[in-house]
Design a protein around this nucleic acid. Sequence first.
DNA 1: GGCGCTTTGTGCGTCAGCGTACATACGGCG
DNA 2: CGCCGTATGTACGCTGACGCACAAAGCGCC
Lengths: 243, 243
Amino acid sequence: MHIANSLLAALPCKDYQRLLARLETVTLTFGEVLYRPGEPIQHVYFPTDALVSLLTVVEGHMALEIGLVGREGMLGIPLALGTNDSPVRALVQGTGTALRMKSAPFLSIFRQSAPLQREIHRYIHERMVQITQTAACNRFHLVEARLARWLLMTRDRVQSDQFRLTQELLGCMLGVLRVAVTKAAGALQQRKLISYRRGEISILDGQGLEATACRCYQVVKNVHDRAPSGHSNREELPVAAVA
Amino acid sequence: MHIANSLLAALPCKDYQRLLARLETVTLTFGEVLYRPGEPIQHVYFPTDALVSLLTVVEGHMALEIGLVGREGMLGIPLALGTNDSPVRALVQGTGTALRMKSAPFLSIFRQSAPLQREIHRYIHERMVQITQTAACNRFHLVEARLARWLLMTRDRVQSDQFRLTQELLGCMLGVLRVAVTKAAGALQQRKLISYRRGEISILDGQGLEATACRCYQVVKNVHDRAPSGHSNREELPVAAVA
DNA sequence: GGCGCTTTGTGCGTCAGCGTACATACGGCG
DNA sequence: CGCCGTATGTACGCTGACGCACAAAGCGCC
């Protein structure tokens, strides 16, 4: 059987089975809000098909995306850190399925499964890198480059060159006005890198997009790709200098 | 005896003693770089007096601060997450002392001390909130507000209304040109909120500064203050919904 | 006491993105 | 088929910050 969430896929069979027994498959639909700042986290989610973005909301301003979660990750990190308070809003961007589980049983399994802890810790680190890079990217790079980056990140997560999304929403993700997205998207379209038709985006030229996107894309991707997922022997990791 | 690092102070005596046996006191001097991206983490640090800032470096751009660590925190989070790869540069901002320890013994103690794990997990969460808020802040708020925020954060960490720092450095922290800092600092000075004299900053009116700073300051502070440090019974936290 | 370095202050042209307003296209539904 | 809401495109003045260049201090050091 093929496990559609890579975080789960990296677990040894025993630990995975244990989780699976308590996991239920749910469909997350576009627009659904899984977490709201201030409200306690009820479930953890392991997306398979679905795509969820994490947004900070600053009073008097538009939202700003600081994380994008697909099949490579999970939602509910704070639980693993000892709190059930989500500092961000989790908004479903791409309809699809996810495996989910109530907080309490997750915690009890989490406490007992070293491989699960290891896997989640690795993912937390990855996410910190992602937030950090996003922060710098939002500060320094032009909308066009950031847009390109976002499209590539999304593609990686939904594993498809096509997905639906309005410019309005994209503006929220990037923290800019819709018009800014229109202009940037127009430029990309003119250069035949994407095609954009009423909320339906297609990536035509991934290579070209990567060239347009800032290096931030590669940086985050590298952390992910380099990370030993699965059964590599991570016990020894911290003594890397030992050879 | 008074423990000068609050993260350590929150530990039960037994666990603290165990750590202390392997900790050494070091003086961190202004300008020293503790971690560099790509280089493996050699030590963890628990600042007491010292102030350290965490910077991302994006190629072709100035640095950008995404974290500020003083007596309330630690350096070396990645170790607790199973990697010795620091994604950021750690630069000593304020000369002072810290307790430190080699990575290997830290890890071995960390694995065995549940209270230490809990405390560090709590801090990781705090730091993620900090990064997130900083990201949004850098995106939306004017330099003047961000500067005010930075000064307040620094004050909280060094526990003094006076510290030394050039505008050049401040520019790096905030991710803006030096001239932008000059203007913003000038404005604050004119309003008698701070006084600035050749690298020596004094906060004259904390209240006023808080009013000028964006709410981001309060948001991060609240997460920290609300967090149960010390001997509150955190075992029960995650099942809040069960009752 | 004056030389030189570091730090701070000022000026000015440029530009990306804001904010707002308005114009056009698509597409489903009655 | 035509209406209407949603989605996209265009225009324009405004401003915060950039990027660069240069002027004016403080301060240490000989």
